[in-house]
């Protein structure tokens, strides 16, 4: 029973990270047809931000690691967002409607960013100092819940709530939804779809940066830190459906739990294979994912 609850906690913890990573992917793909393979490296940028503030900048010397981490949250958000926008403006703009090519181009970008990170911060992994107020743990019904993991779950919940409020109420958010649902109609209604695209891409990339700051708490940071999450996050997008908050949430939780349980019952390597087989099986019933815009049209 305790083991079961523990796996549920692990699953939710993993699922929340997958969720915030998958949201950016899902939006940029759903709205612009861009498959961003460099998303993992935006996570990496976010993850290196607290390390940079704590160890390289020298601004937070003398036991201010916690402050540095708090500062890193908005800074990582911003940094990843700006890199994303730069990428969108220079490269992706040129490849509207060629999703497979965007996949390959962004993969090239991800190789360059990874090597750049190795050249800047060195090849070995580095560690981020957790703030002292996150080092404790709670025990509930025998399940050990480290504060760090709880913090990540809370952060993701906050981010998702803010995002859904943004999409529902702010004019920019409503424009995003409009373009996502029907680009042509939005364009003839007078929206500047290019500007909306930029907002979307900024938000998606920035969320990846925020995810990066969060995952720097639970593991060491290296140039490969993002690649570990990216394939799973793409599976979340496939399972959840495109560009829908609801689908991403359900998909991320489902995959997080499935990962946790199958790895618990089998082993880390077989567990992943079980998840993959489950995804293929799921797609036999819902090829479009859990939530889909499409009600008619040729793509089944």
């Amino acid at each position: 029973m305790e083991a079961l609850l523990e796996q549920i906690f692990n699953g939710v913890s993993l699922g929340s990270i997958l969720l915030i990573v998958a949201l950016g992917l899902s939006f940029s793909f759903g709205q612009m047809g861009v498959i961003n393979m460099a998303h993992g490296e935006l996570i990496m940028i976010g993850a290196y931000t607290p390390y940079f503030l704590q160890s390289e900048s020298g601004w937070f010397d003398g036991g201010a690691a916690g402050t540095a981490f708090v500062v890193a949250l908005p800074l990582g958000f911003l940094a990843a967002g700006l890199v994303g926008v730069a990428m969108e403006r220079t490269l992706l703009r040129r490849m509207v409607g060629r999703p497979l090519d965007t996949l390959l181009v962004t993969f090239g970008v991800s190789l360059i960013l990874q090597q750049a990170a190795r050249d800047t911060f060195g090849a070995p992994n580095v560690d981020v100092v957790s703030p002292t107020w996150l080092t404790g743990r709670w025990e509930l019904l025998g399940v050990v819940m480290p504060h760090r993991r709880l913090f990540i779950i809370a952060l993701v919940m906050l981010a998702v709530a803010a995002l859904s409020a943004f999409l529902a109420t702010r004019p920019e958010g409503r424009r995003m939804r409009a373009v996502m649902q029907n680009r042509d109609l939005a364009e003839v209604s007078g929206l500047s779809t290019r500007r909306v695209d930029r907002t979307t891409f900024f938000l998606g990339s920035a969320l990846a940066g925020l995810a990066g700051v969060a995952v720097s708490l639970v593991g060491s940071v290296g140039s490969q830190v993002g690649t570990g999450y990216i394939v799973d996050a793409f599976l979340v997008v496939i399972v959840g459906g495109l560009g829908k908050l609801r689908g991403a949430i359900v998909g991320a939780l489902a995959l997080g739990l499935l990962n946790a349980f199958s790895e618990f019952w089998t082993s880390a390597s077989i567990g992943k294979a079980v998840v993959f087989v489950a995804v293929i099986a799921f797609l036999q019933f819902r090829p479009n994912g859990l939530v889909s815009f499409r009600t008619r049209g040729l793509v089944a």
């Binding site: 793909f29 999703p99 497979l100 390597s269 077989i270 992943k272 995804v279 090829p287």
Partner: peptide, 27 residues
């Protein structure tokens, strides 16, 4: 058969590569 194509197919094949690697390392 389920008309999964384009990027979805690409991502699925990439997932097979990850699974295969994990299996080789794990077993």
């Amino acid at each position: 058969r389920r008309r999964i194509r384009g990027p979805y197919f690409a991502i699925l094949t990439q997932a097979t590569a990850l699974v295969f690697w994990l299996l080789l390392v794990g077993q």
